[in-house]
Each structure stands twice: as structure tokens, then as C-alpha cells.
Design a protein around this nucleic acid. Structure first.
Lengths: 154, 154
DNA sequence: CCAATCAGGACTGCGATGGTCCGGTTATGA
DNA sequence: TCATAACCGGACCATCGCAGTCCTGATTGG
């Protein structure tokens, strides 16, 4: 079903969450505000950082900040940052070389047009678009709130 | 990396292979001609059959036949037949109900525009398009050939 | 100097996937 | 009528990647 990794899903949440007026936000703080365990959020942020989607500030009072505004971040780039380059492929087994029996693998290159189509589709949707698509406004809180032990209404 | 299941890849190969003038082709025959183990090919064909992409004829001299011409089979349909409905999703964990803490999951519905975009991208590419994209003509043999124990040139 | 924070790994458990096999059913043809 | 060829629909198991956690540095501010 074209599974999307959970981490990628988190990444979108984190990035949208980072889109506030605040200067920097710490990994634990973000984790608390969106209700995802801190180590996991940290992992996501590290990936996003090395992909250049967020900038980091080390040391005390450090944290993360969006490298660009959400409008300029296509969702494809987030997926690429988390799941590696976007490519529907099967031949990509273990060997970096090529399919063991290349002559028997008449698939090589066959998925290219499909990949291109998906690539361009994903380039046309920004995180800002995804932010709008969220359901209620429960999420668009400025900073605190959320993270109630009691289940919020519905 | 948006992994595509290997079975889906095989499915495309099998379907393209099925596009000959022959009436029906048997599962063992197809397996031999494309160099994929027979049980696996059988599995693929079963899925394709129940998805309505191929029709089957039981009994001796039975086999499989394309339900439509390749031009009328969008690749998205093949993926759906093998991997289930196309949907980038993460919330789809175990529970069929909904995310355990729906209030804390501000992602629900967020990926919808992305899914739609991918869906339409995949609808626009037919298997006939993918057949053209294959590399050499090694594959476009009429029936026999291929399946040499010795490695074919390169 | 100490505390807070990011960086970059290693490590582990679970689940999905790839692949195989088996008993049953249907149809052909001798 | 019977043997055979083929599909049907499961169950079954090993492997691999992913989610999630943790630990040890490096860096910065107070």
C-alpha cells in the first residue's frame, strides 16, 4: 500500500509544529507539545537537520528552527529526508551493484516514468498545503495546550 | 523510500509477458519464460486474478489471459491489486477503528491531498507505457527463449 | 565549571514481506 | 470413467527493515 514510514508522518507534524514565531524550540519541548515520545522526536529532528530542512543550535538554550517557511518545503523533500530518495524500486536489494542476473531482470528502468510522475506530484504539494488539510483546529494552537491526560473532546 | 513490493514488480513483468497473441498461458509456463520461481508467479497470478486484471481458466489446458489490453491497465491498479489500496498513511496501525488518541493525532486526513496527487499520477501511466520503458529488447521475445542456465551476454 | 542541548551511533523487538508448500476443485481428453 | 493438468485458497516459516530506545560524545550559555 505504498507504506509511508511513521517517522515521515511525525516529521510533518514536527515541521508544522516548528512553524511558529518562536526563535528556537527544543526537542523535548516539541515532543511534549505534540504528544510523541522525546527520543523519537529527537531522531526525527536529527534527520531533518542533516537534510537541511531545519537548522540547529547546539548548547544550552539551543534548539531547532525551520530553515525555510512551510510554503517552500514540498512534501516530497520531507519524504526524501526521512525515507531516502523517492523511488519505486524492487531491484534495490542488498547489492549496490546491480541485479544479480541483469539479463533476466527486464524491469530495470521500467519504473522510471512512474517515479517521475510521483516525484512531480510530490513536488507540487507543500507542507503549508498539508497544514490546511488537517481536520479540526485543535492543532493550530500557538504554543502550549494539547498534551492533556484527559481525552480532549472527540 | 516508498518501497514498492517485489511482488508488484513481478506483477508488471507477468502482465506484460501475458500480452501476446496466445490464448491462455499457464503459470508454470510464464514462470519459466521470465525466470521467476513458479510458486511465486502463481501467487502473483492469483492476486491479479482476484483483482480482475486477468481471467483464469481452470482444468487441464487452462491458464491465464489478460482481462484487458495493456493500454487499459493503469499501473496504479496493479499496485492496488498487489499491495492493497494506495494510500500513504501511518495511522493505519492495528486497530481498524481509529488512532487510539484521535485528539492527539493531528495528522488524520492530512495526507489526503498527497494521496490524491499520487493516485492521479499513477492513473495516467499504463502498462503499455511501462513496456516501452524497458531497456533492451531481450524481453520482447514472442514466447520461448530466455531461461538459459548460462548467463546471457552481460 | 556545570547544566542543557544537539550529534551520531549501536542496539533490540516486532511486524510485514517474500517465498514455499499442501490439500482441494475443476476441466480436458483418452 | 479415470488420469492428468491446471487453478484455488489457505497455512506456514525465515528474513529483513523499521520503530523506538539508549548511550557516549561535542558544544554552548550561565
Amino acid at each position: 500500500m505504498l507504506r509511508l514510514s511513521k517517522l515521515t508522518d511525525y516529521a510533518v507534524v514536527v515541521l508544522v509544529r516548528l512553524d511558529t514565531g518562536l526563535e528556537v524550540q527544543t526537542s523535548p519541548g516539541i515532543a511534549a507539545s505534540i504528544g510523541i515520545p522525546e527520543p523519537t522526536v529527537a531522531k526525527v529532528l536529527k534527520s531533518l537537520s542533516s537534510a537541511g530542512l531545519v537548522t540547529s543550535q547546539r548548547g544550552a538554550r539551543g534548539g531547532y528552527r525551520l530553515a525555510r517557511v512551510l510554503e517552500d518545503i514540498p512534501v516530497g523533500e520531507v519524504i526524501a529526508a526521512m525515507d531516502g530518495p523517492i523511488a519505486l524500486a524492487a531491484c534495490v536489494d542488498g547489492s549496490v551493484t546491480e541485479c544479480e542476473s541483469r539479463s533476466l531482470c527486464p524491469v530495470r528502468g521500467r519504473w522510471d516514468p512512474v517515479n517521475d510522475a510521483i516525484q512531480s506530484a510530490l513536488s507540487g504539494i507543500s507542507l503549508a498545503d498539508m497544514r490546511e488539510a488537517a481536520i479540526p483546529a485543535v492543532f493550530r494552537v500557538p504554543h502550549s495546550a494539547v498534551l492533556e491526560p484527559s481525552d480532549v473532546s472527540r
